[in-house]
Amino acid sequence: MTFEEIRERLKNFTAGIAGAGGLGSNCAVALARVGIGKLIIADFDIVSESNLNRQYYFRDQVGMKKVEALKENILRINPDVEIEIHDIKLNQSNLSTIYKECHVLVEAFDLAEMKKMLIETCISELPDKPVVVGLGMAGWGDSNSIHLRKSENIYICGDEKSEISEINPPLAPRVAMVANLQANTVLEILIK
């Protein structure tokens, strides 16, 4: 397929991005660059200086709502993407409403309990929706441990072992590797 053909196909699809941190911001930008039709992005957080070591924001955006800053950045790259933003904390009662129309949902939270909430909600309420989860990307090096594993409609991207901590922080290279593995998996699902 040529890039024109790929873009023509992708413009018919909507991807959901649950969380606009390191995974969500980088994954959304990759999907926007290749021409996804619509993104639905939700996050309640604001951009802080400590986010700039891995998240797709700029220093002059510190203090802005993440969803608004990300929308601004994506539109500077590709103004043809339709972007719906929700400045909201996702939970089991609003998640399936917000992401109902998505063809695929990207899980991009930081906390394990939020990841669990999303996966359990999707299994019970959106059982046929492909969900692309980011799991394990702390630290640096050990590139070959990052993988994709499929469990029915759940696609797990990451090393599935490295948990973030004070001495094993999330850093741009590995976080963006997993975010782009998620974006690549979204393409694989959509361009069948």
């Binding site: 930081d110 906390l111 394990g136 469990s151 797990i156 599935e160 490295s162 973030i164 999330p170």
Partner: peptide, 10 residues
């Protein structure tokens, strides 16, 4: 059986 072990980071 699928067991998914969730860890923080993102």
């Amino acid at each position: 059986v699928n067991v998914l072990h969730l860890i923080s980071g993102g």
